[in-house]
Computed example of a mutant assay.
Amino acid sequence: MRDKSTGIQPSGRERHFKPEQLIVSKTDLKGHITYANEVFLDLSDYTESEVLGKPHSLIRHPDMPRCIFKLLWEHISAGKEIFAYVVNMARNGDHYWVHAHVTPSFDANHNVVGYHSNRRKPDPKVVREIIVPLYAELRKIEESTSNRKDGMNAAYDALNQKLSDMGKSYGEFVQSL
């Protein structure tokens, strides 16, 4: 499935990075990239000039459920941090999994002025056994309606029901993995 926003066809090949490497990026309030470190640039196959000012969704993989981004934006726009598993896509269609920690950036008056994300290499077993099946289930729900927003909201509700059944918040679920 070709990504609708970038036109890039996923290759099915996974990229890997070392556990000691940290992917770092910063965005403005609208999610446009204001900083990307070398690890980000190397994994994504973009240059700094190609990513600065662009939406962070530039590296969004089409297999990533939209409802997870809805949850992420709810947290960070409310001034809260969030941890999430994310699959990103490089310029050539290769993908790479990350365990992301996204936080709001504040000015001296405690106003949110942007967002900061650090990503680490996730546990491959957790990705394979828990996250991939969960995200496939959420995407199936998202694709079950003709309206993308309705699909995203249905998957969001299903995720929240699943979390409620476990007696955990999203943060507690991610941290338990």
Score class of each variant (00 low, 15 high):
83 F>R: 15
87 V>H: 08
82 I>H: 09
81 E>Q: 15
1 M>S: 15
144 S>L: 08
138 L>M: 08
43 L>P: 00
67 C>D: 06
95 H>M: 06
99 H>S: 15
81 E>S: 15
136 A>C: 04
164 S>F: 06
24 V>K: 09
157 D>P: 05
45 D>L: 08
105 S>V: 13
9 Q>S: 11
28 D>R: 00
90 A>C: 11
53 G>C: 10
160 N>V: 03
86 V>D: 08
111 N>Q: 12
119 R>D: 08
153 N>K: 07
169 S>V: 08
36 A>P: 00
50 E>Q: 12
73 W>R: 05
158 A>M: 03
33 I>V: 13
37 N>C: 05
85 Y>R: 02
151 G>V: 01
103 T>L: 09
104 P>T: 01
63 D>R: 13
140 K>P: 00
25 S>W: 00
40 F>A: 01
137 E>M: 11
166 M>F: 08
55 P>R: 01
153 N>D: 12
51 V>F: 04
112 V>N: 00
36 A>F: 01
127 V>K: 06
38 E>C: 05
110 H>E: 13
63 D>G: 10
140 K>S: 14
45 D>N: 12
33 I>D: 03
154 A>P: 02
172 E>Q: 15
108 A>T: 09
174 V>R: 02
132 V>L: 06
119 R>T: 05
92 N>D: 15
149 K>L: 11
15 R>V: 05
62 P>V: 02
16 H>E: 14
84 A>P: 02
89 M>V: 10
126 V>T: 14
18 K>A: 13
163 L>R: 05
8 I>M: 04
77 S>N: 15
13 R>W: 03
86 V>R: 02
172 E>G: 12
3 D>H: 10
3 D>V: 02
162 K>L: 08
123 D>R: 06
150 D>A: 12
37 N>G: 10
140 K>T: 11
72 L>Q: 08
94 D>E: 15
34 T>V: 08
133 P>L: 04
15 R>A: 07
100 A>R: 00
111 N>W: 01
42 D>K: 15
106 F>K: 00
161 Q>M: 07
146 S>I: 06
67 C>W: 01
25 S>G: 07
112 V>L: 01
166 M>T: 07
142 E>I: 04
69 F>T: 03
60 R>V: 05
34 T>Y: 03
42 D>P: 02
4 K>R: 06
170 Y>L: 07
75 H>A: 13
105 S>G: 02
13 R>E: 11
115 Y>D: 01
145 T>F: 12
132 V>D: 07
145 T>S: 11
136 A>M: 12
37 N>I: 00
46 Y>F: 10
84 A>F: 14
134 L>M: 11
151 G>I: 00
75 H>E: 14
152 M>W: 00
158 A>T: 12
16 H>L: 12
6 T>F: 03
156 Y>H: 14
165 D>P: 03
97 W>A: 14
173 F>H: 14
